[in-house]
């Protein structure tokens, strides 16, 4: 972990080196996962976390913030957004499995907490499937949703990371979230 310089690679990536992303992503995933677990432990009954918090924490841990521009930061957050989605979905799957009793031991938490978590989990899994379906129609619009929803990026950051205008990012977001909502229903 220490031998990978995320800052360097991030700069390479936002400078156009697409390969760099492949080298960075595993570390982003590990870091986000670790942080997510730590947070879950600490927020006993309500782990409703702004995803931006997690991504931001990973960012602070992995990147030497004084050496990068805000554009680099946007690229990092955009990379992290897909990862964040995977982590959330992985966790939701496991939770779903636990609820159905697929080998997981019962939780000691309150019943309604389980029910609440499960409904959140179902929602997330539905969103994940809908996002895959949207990506068949427009990969870019799916990415806009990832950036906005899973990494909390602003329109400006999203636009920068995806190389589109802010206006396009805004329209994509309106279109995509309406479509996703219908698709999940």
């Amino acid at each position: 972990m220490a031998d990978v310089d995320v800052t360097q690679m991030l700069r390479a990536f936002s400078g156009g080196d697409a390969e760099a992303a492949a080298r960075v992503l595993p570390h982003v995933y590990d870091e986000l996962h670790r942080i997510a677990l730590a947070r879950l432990r600490s927020e006993r009954d309500d782990a409703t976390l702004a995803p931006l918090d997690l991504v931001h924490e990973a960012y602070l841990r992995l990147v030497r913030v004084t050496e990068v521009t805000w554009q680099d930061r946007a690229h990092f957050f955009a990379l992290a957004s897909g990862t964040m989605r995977r982590i959330l979905v992985d966790r939701a799957r496991r939770r779903g499995a636990a609820k159905r009793g697929d080998g997981a031991r019962p939780d000691t938490l309150h019943e309604d907490a389980i029910a609440g978590a499960a409904s959140h989990a179902d929602e997330l899994l539905a969103l994940d499937a809908a996002l895959d379906a949207l990506a068949l129609r427009s990969p870019r619009q799916a990415r806009v949703v990832e950036c906005r929803y899973f990494a909390g990026l602003t329109f400006e950051e999203t636009a920068e990371a995806l190389g589109v205008s802010v206006r396009t990012a805004k329209e994509d977001w309106r279109l995509a979230k309406a479509w996703l909502y219908l698709a999940m229903r």
Binding site: L40, R44, D45, A47, L49, P51, R95, T108, L109, Y149
Partner: peptide, 11 residues
């Protein structure tokens, strides 16, 4: 609403 990270299932 922000996405839900879930509850601690490693207790």
């Amino acid at each position: 609403r922000p996405p839900h990270l879930g509850n601690a299932d490693e207790v």
